[in-house]
Design a protein around this nucleic acid. Structure first.
Length: 587
RNA sequence: GCCCCCGUAGCUCAGUUGGAUAGAGCAGCAGUUUCCUAAACUGCGGGUCGCAGGUUCAAUUCCUGCCGGGGGUACCA
C-alpha cells in the first residue's frame, strides 16, 4: 500500500518543495484509528524546519498536490496528513495477486542464495522431553518455515545432548539402583527417575559426583561397557523424541549430536593453541576472555575431558566448513547467553588471529536466538529436581479436551479424532508462540487448554468458517475476471471491509518482521487481527440490525466476496502452517 | 560484586526499528442465533505504561540511575 501511494504521489510531491518524497515514503505509518485513513504522514518534523504550524503546512501541501480524485483523498488531523485511498484498484490488484499469482501470496525470493542454519529442539538424551523443550522446538521449526517461505535455503538441525558428565551420572545411577529393571519396566520414566534420584542423593553423598566424573572419563576413553550403556540410553530417548516430533509435526534436515563432534575437537584445540589463544589455568585448558568481561571458555577439564563449550566451538567450525551459511541460528534458552557469547568470542579471536578475510569469517553470521523460561504454575521447571511435565501428557490432555468440545459442538464431524488432535496440538503450540520470545511463559493448564479468545483454535475455527462458506457457495470460487475496480470499490467502502483488506495486504510485511526479529509471535498477533476482522465482517449488521450475508442475491458482489473469502482462507491457512498448526476444514 | 533478560488493566499479553485519545484476550456484567459453524459477535466497567531524571517538536518505545522478579557468573549442559 505504501508502494501504491508512493508511486502515485511521488512526482507531484517533488514539485512542491515542501515535503520531499523520500520523507513521505519513509514515514508512512498506520493511523492509530483506522477511521482516520489508511496511511498517515506525521508533519511534526517540518514544524521546526519550515517554522510553520502543521495545519499550515498541510494547507500548502494539499494545494500543491492536486490529488486525483480516483486515487483518494488526503485530510488533516492532529498534525498528520491522513491518506484515504480509493481502494478499488488497490483491492483488485491485491485479490488478483493473492488468487492467481504463481508465487504464493506473501512468499518472496528475498532470501535466495542465503542459506540459513537453524538449530532447535536439541533435547538431552536420558532426560524426558519436557514442556521446557517445547519452546525451542516450536520457535525454531516456525522460523525455519518462515525463512524457507522467504526464499532462503534452510537446514534444520537437531543437536542432541548425548555427551558429557551427565552420562557418568546416569551410569552410576544405573549401576547403583538397578537401572536395568527400572528401564525395562518403563524406559522413559525409568531413566528419568534414575536421573532425579542421583541429584537428590548427590547433595548428601558427594562421592557420587566423583564417581560420575570418573565414569564419564571412562566413557570418553571408549570403555566398551560404558559405551554399551550409553547406547542404551540413547536408544530409549530417540524413540521417545520421535514420538513427540510426530505429534508436533516437526522435522529436521539433520539430526546430529555432541558425540558426533568427539573426533573434531582436537583440530580446533590445535588451531586455538597455535594461534596462541589458549592457556593453562588451575589445571584446565582455557581461552581467557577477561578482557571481554566474560568468564574463560573451558576447553579441557583438569582430568583432560572436554566440555560442552569445546564441542560447541568445534561444531561452529564444522558447520561453517560444511555449509558456508549466510546465518547460523541457535534457538536456545536465555540462560545460555553467556555460553554463546564465549563460544562466538573464541571464534572471533581465532579468525582475527588467523587473519581470515571477511568472506572466510563466520563471526557476524552466528547468532544465539534466546528465549525465556517456561514455568509451570509459577514454579521453574527443573529436570534435576523432578519438576517436570511430560510434553506428551500435556498434548494428550489437550487432544482429549478438543475431543470433548467436538462432541459438544459438532458431534457428526467426520474424522473427528484427527481434527481433535489438530486442535489440541494447535492450542499448545499457539500458547508457546504467541508470547514474545524473551518473556518467560507461565504454563497453566487453564490457559493451555482454553480454546476461546486469542488462541490457536480461534484461528482454526475462523479457517473452518471460511471453508464452510466456500462449501455453502456450492460453486468453484470465481476467477479474477470477476474482479473490477468499481465492484471492489463498492465492496470495500465500509470501515470493517476496508480494515479487512488493508490488513490482508500486510501479510508479506508481517512475515518480513518475523524474519527480521526472529519472532514468530508477530505472526500470531497478525493472524489473530486478521481473523478477528473477518469474524466482525462475517457478523456485521446493517442499520436495521439485520445480518449482512456474504452469499446473497447480488451475484457480482457475492463473487467478489467469495474471492476475498478464498484469499483470507489461504492466508490464514498459510500463516497457521508457518506457525506449525494445521488448518482443518471443519471442526 | 559484575553481566544479561523481564516489569503495560484483577489475570495473561500486544503495542508498527519515537508519533494522534495506550489496545486485545481471559475473568465479571448485559445482549445477539427464523441458525452462510455462537470455538463467534456487540456493549459496559477496568491503566500514575515499576520509580526518578535526561535526549526530542514528540518517550510505553532511546539513554542514565534506582526498585522489584528471573537468569548467568571455570571444570554441568
Amino acid at each position: 500500500m505504501r508502494a501504491a501511494l508512493t508511486s502515485a504521489y511521488k512526482d507531484s510531491l517533488n514539485d512542491t518543495n515542501l515535503l520531499d518524497a523520500d520523507y513521505i515514503y519513509s514515514s508512512f505509518e498506520r493511523p492509530r484509528n483506522p477511521e482516520f485513513g489508511d496511511l498517515a504522514t506525521p508533519l511534526f518534523p517540518y514544524v521546526k524546519v519550515l517554522k510553520k504550524a502543521p495545519d499550515k503546512i498541510f494547507g500548502e501541501v494539499s494545494e500543491a498536490l492536486e490529488i486525483p480524485k480516483e486515487l483518494g483523498e488526503a485530510s488533516f488531523a492532529g498534525g498528520y496528513i491522513n491518506w484515504k485511498l480509493n481502494l478499488g484498484d488497490f483491492s483488485k490488484a491485491l485479490l488478483d495477486e493473492c488468487l492467481s499469482s504463481e508465487k504464493q501470496f506473501g512468499s518472496s525470493q528475498a532470501g535466495a542464495g542465503k542459506r540459513i542454519l537453524v538449530e532447535y529442539s536439541s533435547p538431552n538424551i536420558a532426560k524426558p522431553f519436557g514442556i521446557g523443550h517445547l519452546r525451542s522446538t516450536i520457535i525454531g521449526a516456525s522460523l525455519k518455515r518462515v525463512f524457507e517461505f522467504l526464499g532462503h535455503e534452510t537446514v534444520g538441525i537437531n543437536y542432541l545432548g548425548d555427551w558429557g558428565t551427565q552420562f557418568g551420572k546416569m551410569i552410576v545411577a544405573y549401576r547403583t539402583w538397578d537401572g536395568e529393571k527400572a528401564i525395562s519396566e518403563d524406559p522413559v520414566r525409568g531413566a528419568y527417575n534414575l536421573y532425579v534420584r542421583f541429584h537428590e542423593e548427590e547433595d548428601s553423598n558427594p562421592s557420587l559426583s566423583d564417581q560420575a566424573r570418573k565414569e564419564f572419563k571412562k566413557l570418553e576413553d571408549g570403555n566398551p561397557e560404558s559405551v554399551k550403556l550409553w547406547e542404551k540410553f540413547k536408544d530409549v530417548s530417540h524413540r521417545e523424541f520421535q514420538r513427540v516430533y510426530d505429534i508436533l509435526g516437526v522435522e529436521f534436515d539433520l539430526v546430529t549430536s555432541e558425540s558426533f563432534l568427539n573426533d573434531k575437537m582436537e583440530s580446533i584445540i590445535g588451531r586455538l593453541t597455535k594461534a596462541n589463544l589458549t592457556e593453562t589455568s588451575r589445571g584446565a585448558l582455557i581461552v581467557n576472555l577477561e578482557e571481554y568481561n566474560l568468564p574463560p571458555a573451558l576447553l579441557r577439564k583438569q582430568d583432560g575431558a572436554t566440555l560442552y563449550a569445546t564441542r560447541d566451538i568445534a561444531g561452529l567450525v564444522y558447520r561453517w566448513n560444511k555449509y558456508n551459511f549466510y546465518e547460523s541460528l541457535y534457538i536456545v534458552g536465555s540462560a545460555q547467553a553467556d555460553h554463546f557469547k564465549q563460544a562466538f568470542k573464541v571464534i572471533d579471536l581465532l579468525e582475527s588471529a588467523e587473519n581470515l578475510s571477511d568472506k572466510e569469517r563466520m563471526t557476524e553470521r552466528v547468532k544465539h536466538i534466546p528465549f525465556g523460561w517456561v514455568k509451570f504454575e509459577d514454579k521453574a521447571l527443573s529436570t534435576r529436581r523432578g519438576h517436570l511435565i511430560m510434553l506428551e501428557d500435556v498434548l494428550k490432555k489437550a487432544i482429549y479436551l478438543a475431543k470433548e468440545k467436538i462432541a459438544e459442538k459438532n458431534p457428526d464431524l467426520a474424522k473427528s479424532d484427527n481434527v481433535a488432535e489438530q486442535i489440541g496440538v494447535g492450542a499448545i503450540i499457539y500458547t508457546q508462540l504467541s508470547v514474545r520470545r524473551l518473556k518467560d511463559v507461565n504454563f497453566t493448564w487453564a490457559a493451555a487448554l482454553n480454546f476461546e479468545g486469542e488462541t490457536g483454535p480461534y484461528l482454526q475455527y475462523t479457517h473452518a468458517r471460511l471453508c464452510s462458506l466456500i462449501r455453502k457457495y456450492g460453486k468453484p470460487v470465481p476467477g479474477v475476471e470477476r474482479l473490477d475496480s468499481e465492484l471492489c470499490e463498492k465492496m470495500f467502502s465500509d470501515q470493517i471491509s476496508r480494515s479487512l483488506i488493508t490488513t490482508l495486504a500486510r501479510f508479506p510485511e508481517e512475515l518480513a518482521h518475523v524474519a527480521r526479529d526472529y519472532e514468530p509471535s508477530h505472526l500470531c498477533s497478525y493472524l489473530t487481527d486478521l481473523a478477528t476482522l473477518f469474524n466482525k465482517f462475517y457478523q456485521r449488521k446493517n442499520s436495521h440490525g439485520k445480518l449482512v450475508r456474504i452469499i446473497d442475491e447480488d451475484e457480482n458482489l457475492t463473487a467478489v466476496r467469495m474471492i476475498l473469502v478464498e484469499c483470507l482462507r489461504r492466508t490464514i491457512e498459510r500463516g497457521l502452517n508457518l506457525l506449525g498448526l494445521k488448518a482443518p476444514q471443519e471442526m
